[in-house]
Design a protein around this nucleic acid. Structure first.
Lengths: 138, 138
DNA sequence: GTTTATGCAAATTCTTTGCAATACT
DNA sequence: AGTATTGCAAAGAATTTGCATAAAC
């Protein structure tokens, strides 16, 4: 069975063309994607279907929302998460020039002490700066 | 001179009622605020004016955009930044219940090593979980 | 045959732009 | 007086909702 179907089955999601296609895009793409960029790649699917699929993937722990300070939400594959428990330790890098957000898979967030009373559940770290591609061009 | 006016003068911004009021809200509020919540507190000001004021405050280094995984942008005071140089080391905490985002002023982001080729410019860390207020209620 | 997902239309929410009127210095 | 800011109208993104049709199991 193909990777996409394996993942969908694992989460008890019906195997539909839309889900297969969207999941496929994420599996073959190292950067975080917005709804708009998926819509671009899949012009045959309805805008709303894409929204609902993304949302359901997040609920099922297949995707996670990536932190951003911009307008539209971005999503990325949960490589490190297990099912419905999102115990993320994500480091993402957003390039200020090309605006691409990449997962820095190998970079770990060092541990730090939380103030009393705050219960940490999920930790996200976003570094903004200039990516290797863009710094070469200048 | 009042705090608000001092800050506006320092950044060569004209002293207007809108700016004074918006800045005042931030000075008296420990949490990150969205455009909508400011609009609520200041029903006499035009929606657009609030947007433009927030934007100009960000440009001048008075406010900074706070990382979020939600729909609307949130803003908070730059306590640690100097003028136009945003050299942030912010840790923010977003409560999954009340959705308030607070600045953990005393918590520092530990240093970590970036992969080769990536130029870090700004670092943001968002912890999501349950805040002291909400964990008491349960 | 049931249940779940899709597509279309339409509504909401968030944000930006243009321009004339107004307020600041 | 001269320049920057405001308000209003309107447009433009991003996202959500309702409901009938269609597809998956």
């Amino acid at each position: 069975m193909i990777e996409t179907e394996k993942i969908l089955k694992k989460h008890n999601l019906r195997l539909t063309d839309g889900r297969r296609s969207i999941l496929d895009i994420f599996l073959n793409n190292p950067v975080a994607l917005s709804h708009a960029s998926i819509e671009e790649k899949l012009p045959n699917f309805d805008r709303v279907t894409i929204y609902r699929t993304l949302y359901s993937f997040v609920e099922n722990g297949i995707l996670h929302k990536v932190l951003d300070d911009g307008m539209a939400s971005k999503f990325a594959l949960c490589h490190t998460c297990h099912d419905h428990k999102h115990t993320h330790q994500h480091v993402h890098f957003k390039c200020e020039i090309c605006l691409d957000t990449t997962c820095l898979e190998k970079t770990r967030i060092p541990s730090f002490v939380m103030p009393d009373g705050f219960l940490a559940h999920e930790i996200g770290l976003l570094v903004q700066g200039i990516c290797p591609k863009c710094s070469q061009k200048n």
